[in-house]
């Protein structure tokens, strides 16, 4: 009995490999998962966009759930997601911190003047020092950071209402529950 079915083994192995490769065929290699998920936000110390003398650090993220959005005025994807950021700033109490990445201060300020400013405060990373520490490889990217300063999610590419609802909101709820638990 077992001997007769032995010819099925290579067929099964082959089918398994086909399944794996088929899945690989449709996975997007540009979506590189971040090694920072569930890790503390990397340290940084950068001047702010409107005041060169003022600096912000990762300590800003402690005590509330926040977004950290990597953007630049030269970045077309950032233009596409700007509406979405404005909406988040208007409709939620989640602060959006910006990392103005590889950009010119003047151009960034002009961008915000023309399109509206959804950011609580912007850090200026002209030379991509903090960007590298955060594993940024393109703009826009958006990190979700919980009340303890732990990165819970990273989205690569423009934010959309669909991604916001599917990926961000559930995680924000979880982070809220943890934060409420820590307070009581």
């Amino acid at each position: 009995m077992a001997g007769k079915l032995k010819f099925l083994i290579p067929i099964a192995v082959f089918a398994g490999m086909v399944a794996i490769f088929y899945k690989g065929l449709y996975s997007d290699p540009t979506l590189v998962s971040s090694p920072f998920i569930d890790k503390a936000a990397p340290v940084f110390n950068l001047p702010t966009l409107y005041d060169d003398q003022k600096h912000i650090t990762e300590a800003e993220f402690k005590g509330r759930i926040s977004l950290f959005n990597v953007w630049a005025s030269w970045c077309p994807g950032c233009a596409r997601e700007h509406e979405m950021l404005l909406m988040i700033a208007r409709d939620t109490d989640i602060p959006i911190y910006g990392l103005n990445w590889k950009d010119e201060r003047q151009a960034a300020q002009k961008w915000l003047r023309e399109r509206g400013n959804p950011y609580t405060v912007n850090a200026v990373d002209r030379d991509n020092v903090t960007g590298i520490d955060w594993g940024v490889y393109g703009a826009p990217e958006t990190f979700l950071i919980d009340g303890e300063g732990i990165i819970r999610y990273k989205h690569i590419g423009p934010l959309t209402p669909e991604i916001w609802a599917a990926e961000f909101l559930p995680r924000i709820e979880t982070a809220r529950a943890t934060l409420a638990g820590a307070d009581s």
Partner: peptide, 8 residues
């Protein structure tokens, strides 16, 4: 590099 960008 791996700490920041992953094994990829």
């Amino acid at each position: 590099l791996v700490e920041r960008y992953g094994d990829f």
